[in-house]
Design a protein around this nucleic acid. Structure first.
Length: 565
DNA sequence: GGGATGTGAC
């Protein structure tokens, strides 16, 4: 940089002709216009010293700002606007690609749309770089329909265009669409690269589609597609999300180098599988290999401690988090509250929430409300519940939780009141739902829906499971679930959880030593894993329960109870 | 002379 500045002053002092000056300065510009921000600011100053900067000079600065730190990105668009106002030189395809990139990062929807119009007006519509850039821009702005429209209008789509569209779907949780398009890409005979495959693997993870995921992994190997850190990380995540934590570990172990995302994926994978000790040892390994733990790694380790009821370890890692200089997010606070609540440290949870520097969000309040219910603490529970109803008056889970608090304290009239409020507002809770794949067919179990053709047999297995688990010495806790029967409000002691139905079905349908994989659409409790281990011993089946809480964030905290069985 | 696509989360 210093050398470049010297060359710059040399050019100025020699009073070289304008044309030479412009050309030399644009060379300097292209070098300067690479991060960090300081260089780009220098490049920008240079740009406006040139009497008639050519398009290359403009492009260098626009590109430089689009690749720089996020805070300087808007500068990229404003320099483009300045170029347009001047009226000369005319932006070329490179200019528009750089601006579209910026618009997709910000995102700047209106500006991007104007660039799109300019692409058409300038007759650049057939430029493949601009086509992909436009698809990417609309996908990043979450206007997936527009992205698809641009994509469909490309006559000869190259690999990047396919890859961009597939990635766009995957980012927006449209996993089925992503996989379907990948199928079409193969039909079209276009060979994907490792970036395409990362999106495809991530789509399999999102769907919990283990069979497809395995096939995709084999395909990557067969096609000799480069498996880099990012693709490996996506594979770890996919296997972990599909309930195959051992395979996730295998991929992890075989990696030559790992970055912070790789480590945190493995930690989170163990955490959600209830393998608290493994999560802790991977975290320790991360520190040892001198990869700085990021916020997700801490999130994973705290989640693992909460699930495994490792209060001491959780608090220890909370202190490490504070020392690391990472600003704890709401999610980190949420994990700590969950940690105390699951361990039944009611007072600690209360004090922790009170001392938080930010106001607790609804997830934390729900977690605490469940703890209030368990401790039959009417006073704190009622105020927490009211706080929740104020914050989220349209979330049925809040009403359900408050009413079950009243039920636990036998305040039937108050409970009826809350239920009535809920009815008057037309709110209904989403029932828990779990699914299991048996011989290629997906069976879904929705709580309260007993229309399954084999319900009698499932019930038989279920009572057998309950009897044998109790005999094994595990304390079977029965949760109270409120049921509306017409106008009459009745409390029934039920102990229904949808993953139990799915597991029972798995036991009914398989013979030892089958692997039973269940995907639950709500958060799985830590205790569930413990009891699942017992069942798998009794029935000689390997049972894996994975949750998909990512898609149901709004119910966070609702399963924060120990009484899964 | 410079350009488009990907991974983790309560």
């Amino acid at each position: 940089m210093r050398v470049l500045q010297q060359i710059h002053s040399y050019i100025l002092t020699r009073a070289l002709p304008f044309s030479t000056l412009c050309f030399s300065l644009s060379k300097i510009l292209s070098f300067c216009a690479i991060s960090p921000v300081g260089n780009i600011l220098y490049a920008e100053r240079l740009l406006f010293q040139i009497p008639n900067p050519n398009i290359f000079s403009w492009n260098s600065v626009i590109r430089g700002f689009s690749q720089s730190h996020i805070s300087a990105t808007t500068q990229s668009v404003s320099i483009f606007k300045r170029l347009i106002r001047r009226g000369h030189p005319n932006p070329n395809t490179y200019t528009l690609v750089f601006v579209l990139k910026t618009c997709s990062i910000l995102p700047a929807i209106q500006e991007g749309q104007q660039v799109h119009a300019r692409v058409i007006r300038s007759g650049f519509s057939t430029n493949s770089f601009l086509q992909s850039s436009l698809v990417n821009f609309y996908a990043k702005c979450e206007d997936i329909k527009c992205a698809r429209k641009v994509f469909d209008e490309i006559p000869d789509r190259n690999m990047i265009a396919w890859s961009t569209m597939i990635g766009g779907y995957a980012k927006l949780d449209m996993f089925n669409e992503a996989l379907a398009l990948f199928g079409e890409m193969q039909k079209a005979g276009v060979v994907p690269d490792e970036l395409t495959m990362a999106s495809v693997v991530s789509a399999c993870a999102g769907l919990g589609a283990l069979d497809t995921g395995r096939w995709v992994h084999a395909y990557i190997k067969k096609q000799r597609i480069l498996i880099d850190i990012k693709l490996n990380t996506a594979l770890i995540n996919m296997y972990a999300k599909c309930g195959c934590i051992e395979k996730a570990r295998e991929v992890f172990d075989e990696m030559p180098t790992r970055d912070s995302r790789t480590w945190s994926s493995m930690i989170v994978g163990y955490a959600v599988h209830g393998h608290a000790d493994d999560a802790l040892s991977v975290f320790a390994g991360m520190e040892k290999s001198q990869v700085k733990p990021n916020n997700v790694a801490f999130l994973g380790v705290l989640l693992a401690c909460a699930h495994g009821q490792l209060v001491y370890e959780g608090q220890k890692h909370w202190d490490i988090l504070l020392e690391s200089g990472i600003q704890p997010s709401m999610e980190h606070y949420s994990c700590m509250v969950d940690l105390f609540c699951r361990a039944n440290l009611f007072q600690e949870a209360y004090t922790f929430i009170k001392n938080m520097p930010i106001d607790p969000d609804p997830v934390i309040l729900r977690t605490f409300l469940v703890a209030c219910k368990k401790n039959k603490n009417m006073e704190k529970g009622e105020s927490t519940g009211q706080q929740l109803l104020k914050l989220e008056p349209s979330n049925p889970e809040n009403y359900a939780l408050l009413s079950s608090l009243y039920a636990s304290c036998s305040s039937w009239s108050k409970m009826g009141n809350v239920r009535k409020q809920m009815r008057d507002k037309g709110l209904k809770t989403t029932p828990g739902c779990s699914s299991i794949e048996v011989e290629g067919t997906l069976h879904e179990f929705v709580l309260g829906d007993w229309s399954h053709p084999e319900r009698e047999e499932i019930m038989e297995v279920l009572s057998d499971v309950l009897r044998r688990v109790t005999a094994f010495g595990h304390k079977v806790d029965v949760s109270e679930v409120c049921h509306d029967v017409g106008d009459e409000v009745k409390v029934e002691a039920l102990c229904e959880h949808s993953e139990r139905l799915a597991i029972a079905y798995g036991i009914l349908k398989t013979k030892a030593p089958a692997v039973i994989r269940v995907v639950k659409n709500l958060r799985v409790c830590g205790d569930c894993h413990e009891v699942t281990k017992i069942i798998s011993k009794i029935y000689e089946r390997e049972i894996v329960v994975r949750d998909r809480v990512r898609f149901h964030r709004f119910v966070g905290g609702i399963c924060s109870c120990k009484d899964i069985w």
